[in-house]
């Protein structure tokens, strides 16, 4: 147990080091989300705080969704097949998927916090209960990372993986996205925390289901 945990730790550290060495990919993702926010800001031609709350909220989550899919799609394609075969001999598939998910959670946290900061800066912060809004953002990052990592593994096995990644992940991510939209709308309207409890529990449950499925099913993808 101890040993397996430390192996996962090593794998996570490897992911971070790899990302740091290929900084153009990381910078690309950061620029992608900033660029997307700015395009939306200019397209609406809105001054701060002039968007309707519901548009503000939905737009933010759509940007999040697309940057998440783009960022996580490259989880399994950035390393060559030979190197993946090498990992296959070193570690169990469960350790690999857990390490990838942990790394992607970290990546999504950075992306969503940066996205929120830029978004709130140019379009104004309409969230009244911003702690709850940030809480929703964190849960969303975990859920996106967990469900999209498995889908990225599936899509990477096919040739035309960019299109496939999008069509496979939209329906999978939708229940989560709808619940997140509802929680963050509650947070914007400053409703009492207890009003969002059901949604938060459901998000946690979906996160748990997807995590469990990823760990159970990934060995079958990894084998081929």
């Amino acid at each position: 147990m101890q040993q397996s945990l430390s192996q996962i730790g090593t794998l996570v550290a490897k992911e971070f080091r790899l990302e740091w060495r290929q900084r153009y990919a990381l910078n690309g993702m950061l620029l992608y989300i900033v660029g997307a926010v700015f395009v939306c800001y200019l397209s609406f031609n809105a001054r701060r705080g002039q968007l309707l709350p519901i548009v503000w909220n939905t737009l933010f989550w759509i940007i999040q969704l697309f940057s998440a899919i783009n960022a996580i799609a490259k989880t399994f394609v950035q390393e060559r097949a030979g190197r993946q075969l090498y990992y296959y001999t070193l570690a169990s598939p469960q350790q690999i998927i857990i390490a990838k998910i942990i790394y992607n959670i970290g990546l999504m946290l950075v992306l969503s916090l940066l996205g929120f900061a830029v978004y709130a800066f140019v379009l104004g912060n309409l969230a009244q209960d911003w702690q709850l809004y940030l809480g929703g953002l964190l849960l969303g990052a975990v859920g996106f990372a967990a469900s999209l990592t498995l889908v990225a593994g599936i899509a990477a096995k096919a040739e035309n993986s960019a299109t496939l990644m999008a069509i496979l992940s939209f329906p999978v991510i939708l229940p989560l996205l709808l619940l997140l939209l509802r929680v963050s709308k509650n947070a914007m309207d400053g409703l009492e925390r207890s009003a969002s409890r059901d949604e938060l529990l459901s998000i946690l449950a979906i996160d748990a289901i997807v995590l469990a499925l990823s760990v159970l099913l990934f060995p079958f993808i990894w084998k081929s």
């Binding site: 599936i154 040739e159 499925l213 079958f220 993808i221 081929s224």
Partner: peptide, 29 residues
């Protein structure tokens, strides 16, 4: 569509079986 993306039968069967299970798990909520 995912099934159409593979030529190798075993591989197609394995990957699409994984997605099938995931799809049902998402379908329930």
């Amino acid at each position: 569509v995912l099934r159409g993306a593979f030529d190798d039968e075993q591989r197609r069967a394995r990957i699409s079986a994984v997605y099938n299970i995931l799809a049902f798990a998402v379908f329930i909520p």
